[in-house]
């Protein structure tokens, strides 16, 4: 039943945003394969604290795959060697005894490192602030059932809306492009009559902000879709392209 493994960890350490980083190697022993990856990191940190060393800083919060906070690039893949999971949902049964595990932060000009494995993903908020909403204020809205919405559209909108904003798409993309993130929000709202009203303005504003913040462009490698923990489809990117081009040609 319970199995334990020993691992060598190669972890990116960086004291601050402007400091130079480097890899450090640590060993952890007797890790239960039923533990989550972040529990393994907790064990490492407990070990480091007991040795009076500074623990490894990494982002995490809900530990159930929904807040989008955890963001480790493990063995060459965002969120590590499992599909459709966030780092916190990755379990140690995916690793072999004696393995060396390389852990890096997300790498993108738009996501600068704050400390160790923590990056600043404020750029995503800025993109949403540029137009990722329906411009309604509190109160004075029609009854919820006033506008019927086809179940198919509602379901597809929900699929797009399930993005957790973790940034794995940016981390996976060779161009550090945020197109999957942007397209998921544009699609969610474009599919609903409530969001349709300002669809043109939204697509233009969000893409312009994304470009301004230094994300790369999409070259359709599809890596984002494969690494997305929530399975957001690149058909959203096609829809964003469509919405954006329509909006630009309508100018």
């Amino acid at each position: 039943m319970e199995k334990t493994i020993n691992l060598t960890l190669k972890i990116w350490r960086q004291n601050g945003p402007k400091e130079k980083g480097r890899f450090e190697t640590y060993k952890v022993n007797n890790i239960s394969t039923d533990s989550s990856f972040l529990e393994m990191m907790d064990i490492l940190n407990e070990q480091l604290i007991n040795e009076n060393k500074e623990p490894v800083a990494f982002d995490h919060d809900c530990r159930e795959g929904i807040c989008g906070m955890c963001s480790l690039y493990i063995n060459g893949r965002p969120h590590g060697p499992d599909d459709d999971v966030t780092t916190c949902q990755l379990h140690m049964r995916k690793f072999k005894d004696g393995e060396t595990v390389t852990i890096e932060p997300w790498r993108a000009a738009a996501f600068p490192v704050i400390k160790d494995l923590i990056v600043d993903r404020n750029a995503f908020d800025k993109i949403i602030a540029a137009g990722g909403y329906v411009s309604v204020s509190t109160g004075g809205v029609p009854d919820a059932n006033a506008i019927p919405i086809s179940k198919i559209d509602a379901d597809e909108s929900m699929d797009s809306a399930s993005c957790i904003g973790c940034g794995a798409c940016v981390a996976a993309c060779k161009n550090s492009s945020a197109m999957l993130f942007v397209s998921a929000k544009v699609s969610q709202l474009a599919l609903l009559p409530q969001g349709r009203v300002e669809a043109k303005r939204r697509a233009k504003a969000m893409v312009a902000k994304m470009d301004e913040l230094g994300f790369g462009g999409c070259t359709n490698t599809g890596a984002c879709e494969v690494e997305c923990p929530k399975n957001i489809s690149i058909t959203n990117i096609a829809r964003l392209n469509r919405e954006y081009l329509k909006a630009r040609f309508a100018e």
């Binding site: 190669k10 990116w12 890899f23 790498r107 161009n175 550090s176 070259t219």
Partner: peptide
Amino acid sequence: NYKARPVGYAQSN
């Protein structure tokens, strides 16, 4: 696109 990632990954799969 190159400019969008000034620091690359040590290990990439």
